[in-house]
Amino acid sequence: MRTLGEYIRLYFIIEAQYIKARMQYRADFIISSIGMLFTSLATLGVFWVILQSVPDVAGWSLMEMVFIYAFYMIAISPMQILFDHIWQLRFHVQEGTFLKYYFRPLNMMFYYMSEMFDLKGLIQLVMGIALLIYSSIQLQVDWTILKFVLLLITLFSAALVQIAIIVAASCAAFWVVESYPVLGLAWKLREFAPYPMSIFDGAFRFTFTFLIPIGFVAFYPSQLFLRPEEVHWFVYLSPIIGVGLFSLAYWIWAKGVNSYTGTGS
């Protein structure tokens, strides 16, 4: 077994090489970054347009929506930046090139994900941080050290929830040949995470809170900072939910890796 420290050091070495190689395609990086900027701000743009006609959505003002959205952008960044190789899983599995990941004395998920580092995702992270600072100044959120620690913990668990959903969906590739639609659906659900969950009721609210808990990616944790008096008891469970879901996704991944028999070639 390797220690966490060794893995972190190894990760930096691998990514340094990867980034050097990617920098040959500078134009691609610039164009992709512009694409990322547009994609990550699209839903916020929609909220902005809507709030030109009405003062609030279910009691949430534009600036509060910006805060929730900024939280969302930061929370999904680790998935975007560190787990981008997930999109290639189905090709590796189908073409048999996935076999190579069995032959290194490294954790397989670590080795597989380390092969890609999504530079354009950094744009999303930076935008998210900037918007979080801007909106919390506008909303006069008074930051204490305790609150800042709480922010880091909730962001960490929100990121784990998002990573778990995407990893679990991508594992469909181990069992079904045509697995893209499963991942595509999980990817689409991600877009609903910055919506105020209070607009939903019935089956939708239940699904987004307990079954596919995208509510924990942005809305529920950001309530802790915006309206602490309205927080439901289960919001405090978010670190447990994050770690629990990630463990579940990891278990599915391990199952898939063990059942994979190659392509026979």
Binding site: Y25, A27, D28, I30, I31, S32, S33, I34, G35, M36, F38, T39, A42, K120
Partner: peptide, 13 residues
């Protein structure tokens, strides 16, 4: 251009 994701993503939005 060598980039396709960036151009199509921008166009889609």
């Amino acid at each position: 251009s060598e980039s396709v994701w960036g151009v199509t993503a921008t166009k889609d939005i």
